[in-house]
């Protein structure tokens, strides 16, 4: 299995690893049975993603795609974040091996879940 240099870079030096204790929204997708699970935490300020962090259990592609997703999301408006697709993440990484496209490239979904979580909480508040 050959990964692109960009995938390997994000795997070796993942950006924005960690949790945000008082996150405004959290999104978790996947499950450990499948071998991939990721959580994305966001802080929102003026309808923009002010800070974002992640934790991932999974393969190299799972870690690299979550890292890239957090990079793409940072500073974006919530609407813009909702527009980020799995394909965008793969493209930014210089492509993924085909087998990894569906099983490990879930981070965009986790980001969307985090935004929805924030909006839900805000709606309730």
């Amino acid at each position: 299995m050959m990964y692109s240099e960009k995938v390997l870079d994000h795997f070796r030096n993942p950006r924005n690893v960690g949790e945000i204790e008082d996150a405004d929204g959290v999104g978790t997708v996947g499950n450990p049975v499948c071998g991939d699970m990721m959580s994305i935490y966001i802080k929102v300020k003026d309808d923009r993603i002010d800070d974002v962090k992640f934790k991932t259990f999974g393969c190299g592609a799972a870690i690299a795609t979550t890292s890239m997703t957090t990079e793409l999301a940072k500073g974006k408006t919530l609407d813009e974040a909702m527009e980020i697709t799995r394909q965008d993440v793969a493209d930014e990484l210089g492509g993924l091996p085909p087998v990894k496209m569906h099983c490990s490239n879930l981070a965009a979904d986790a980001l969307h879940e985090a935004v929805k979580d924030y909006r839900k909480k805000k709606g309730e508040a």
Binding site: F11, C59, G60, I63
Partner: peptide
Amino acid sequence: SYIEGEALLLSLSD
């Protein structure tokens, strides 16, 4: 526990 093998292989390969 708590981690996945392919990520281990890639890290060890480095």
